[in-house]
């Protein structure tokens, strides 16, 4: 009797949560999925079709944009990793407790303002009439202002900056469990710094690297503002294409199909990445 009562209250309390999840996450996605299989016949009548998916593969611009986006997201992930590794190592192993707190706050700081503000901040710094150029001219390093915005390198820098925290945090948490004596033991066994990094630190941090990389990769892939504002003329990002389909071309069916392709293809990329590095998701999650 009592068990029953408990079960009822349990479900009573859980049901709003489930309903919430269902309403907000599952239903819109089903709606979008259905949408992505709709199209118009030549007569303009609505029909079921695979055309939206076919378009992606037939039209070079679409898959080219996707490839470009995925490639740049990977580059971003890699750069973020390369930068985040020494930073987290310093925070965990070298910094004093007080400096540690300070550095962590420093990493969090950019997230106190919205992404838009952050991107505009960068633009004020980097533009031709911007702060950097002003000082470099003043100091005589250059005699002509240079445009530092609107190129792929700046865009990747912006993406890396935005992603940094999401790589550093998991790295810090795995690094904390790395026993200092392992590093010392390797050092004692004639390993150079690079050897230690390669053979001890990175293998130990693998789960953190993987989870950080997945998050950063997905964030970069799904970013819209940074590539759009900092990347400039050539930087068509796949999310922008989805946006354009929905907003500019009013082609929701195509937009929905792109959305699902993004979901599926990015999952495939992550799956391949895990396979190549011989890991499984359960390991990473634990």
């Amino acid at each position: 009797m009592m068990g029953n009562g408990f079960r009822i209250t349990f479900w009573l309390f859980l049901s709003p949560v489930l309903l919430w999840l269902f309403l907000l996450i599952v239903i819109p996605h089903i709606d979008l999925l259905l949408l992505s299989f709709r199209g118009e016949s030549d007569m303009g009548d609505p029909i079921w079709t695979l055309q939206n998916y076919k378009n992606f593969f037939i039209e070079p611009i679409y898959w080219y944009t996707f490839l470009r986006t995925a490639l740049y997201a990977m580059i971003t992930t890699f750069c973020t990793f390369i930068l985040a590794l020494p930073v987290s190592f310093y925070i965990v192993k070298l910094a004093r407790p007080r400096t540690r707190g300070f550095l962590t706050v420093l990493l969090l700081l950019p997230f106190w303002v919205s992404e838009l503000v952050r991107v505009y901040g960068w633009m004020i710094l980097l533009r031709e009439s911007g702060v950097f150029n002003y000082f470099m001219l003043k100091m005589g390093i250059i005699d002509q202002p240079i445009e530092m915005l609107y190129n792929d390198i700046t865009m990747i820098m912006g993406l890396v900056y935005t992603s940094m925290l999401f790589m550093v945090v998991p790295l810090i948490s795995v690094m904390e469990s790395l026993d200092d004596s392992l590093i010392e033991a390797a050092h004692d066994l004639e390993a150079s710094r690079f050897d230690i990094l390669r053979t001890i630190i990175i293998p130990h941090c693998k789960p953190g690297i993987t989870s950080g990389s997945i998050v950063v990769f997905m964030l970069a892939l799904g970013n819209y503002l940074t590539p759009n504002l900092m990347g400039g003329k050539n930087s068509l990002w796949f999310t922008e294409q989805i946006y354009n389909q929905f907003i500019a071309s009013f082609n929701w069916n195509q937009g929905a199909a792109f959305g699902f392709l993004l979901l599926v293809l990015s999952s495939v990329i992550i799956w391949v990445g895990l396979k190549v590095t011989r890991q499984n998701l359960g390991e990473v999650a634990s």
Binding site: K233, L236, N244, S249
Partner: peptide, 14 residues
Amino acid sequence: EVMEGKILDKIKAA
């Protein structure tokens, strides 16, 4: 508008 959308994408991606 669909036509124009494609063209705009093409220009941006070039």
